[in-house]
């Protein structure tokens, strides 16, 4: 069972790594990062950047990790995960083997997460280095950036699980991936982008309050150059913020401090995992009754 799941996951990872759209995704992310960097740099002034108060490096990372381009891209990838295999007939070959439909869905899910882990690893390593080369900030803040990147890297994978699982569910229901993708765009707009633009939009959402932070998490960059030493929050919900603070002012050894305000990181993780599992179980149930013609 495990071997079959791993085979499907491996195939999914390689299949996605080969697609040329990865390059488009990278290009969008880099353009976003450069524009954001230029904006932040002009707003803060180069001195503050060099002091490591709001490094352009991790602003970039924040955007790609929890930003809309990232979500849209993973939904694009996941929206064709099941229906494309059914339409092309490749699923037909797989299901004549001792591979259950449950194993197939789990393999696909893990494969997409694996793919996200790989491309984001590349981005989180590559981009800060690239930015350092082009924008040339002080090298003593690089360790902070690496640590922040690591935390954010893990978070980006966790954050994507819910969107991947929803995409997979719709991919088992709808024949065309474009339908699934448009639905996912709608979900991202309604539950992610709209609440960021207008907090009141979240109040009328039918999503239970405990679940809302999972969808409404967004990027915010809190630049505090006052008495508090260098601090940055990067996960913000419409209810309150889950702050990750970088404290590098007291000693030269940077530390990452997670401060819990209205929702804790643990709660966020639990909700994400539980929701993803529930959605995948529904997807398996739908898929198990489906004719493969």
């Amino acid at each position: 069972m495990v071997l079959s799941i791993l085979q499907i996951a491996k195939r999914t990872i390689f299949e996605n790594l080969k697609i040329k759209n990865n390059l488009i995704y990278f290009a969008i992310v880099i353009i976003f990062a450069i524009l954001f960097n230029l904006g932040i740099s002009s707003y803060l002034g180069i001195n503050e950047i060099e002091a490591g108060i709001a490094s352009n490096y991790f602003v970039w990372a924040l955007l790609i990790s929890a930003g809309a381009p990232f979500l849209i891209y993973i939904c694009y990838i996941a929206s064709g995960s099941i229906n494309k295999e059914l339409n092309s007939g490749t699923a037909l070959m797989l299901f004549t083997r001792p591979l259950s439909r449950k194993e197939f869905i789990i393999g696909k899910f893990l494969g997409i997460l694996g793919y996200i882990a790989i491309i984001n690893a590349f981005i989180f390593l590559f981009v800060p280095t690239l930015m350092n080369l082009f924008f040339g900030a002080s090298t003593n803040i690089l360790p902070i950036i690496w640590k922040l990147s690591l935390v954010f890297y893990v978070f980006s994978i966790l954050f994507s699980t819910i969107f991947v699982s929803i995409s997979i569910l719709f991919s088992t229901i709808f024949k065309h991936s474009i339908t699934v993708f448009l639905i996912m765009i709608g979900i991202i707009l309604a539950l992610y982008i709209l609440p960021i633009i207008n907090e009141s939009a979240l109040q009328i959402s039918i999503i239970p309050n405990i679940v809302k932070p999972v969808f409404a998490s967004t990027v915010s960059v809190l630049i505090d150059s006052g008495n508090v030493s260098n601090s940055i929050s990067f996960i913000s919900t419409a209810y309150g913020d889950v702050f990750y603070k970088i404290d590098s002012g007291i000693s030269n050894a940077p530390r990452i401090i997670v401060q819990n305000y209205t929702s804790s990181l643990t709660l966020f993780l639990v909700i994400t995992v539980v929701l993803s599992i529930i959605i995948l179980i529904v997807a398996m149930s739908v898929f198990s009754k489906k004719d493969i013609a």
Binding site: Q7, R11, G89, M93, L94, T96, R97, L99
Partner: peptide, 30 residues
């Protein structure tokens, strides 16, 4: 399912895979 082999009328492969890798994958899944 382990003792069943099926060859469909239409060719349905992962076209990006090479022949050897594809056969290895199908063997492993079997």
């Amino acid at each position: 399912r382990k003792i069943i082999g099926y060859m469909p009328e239409k060719d349905t492969f992962y076209e990006d895979m090479n022949a050897k890798d594809y056969l290895l994958m199908m063997a492993s899944l079997s």
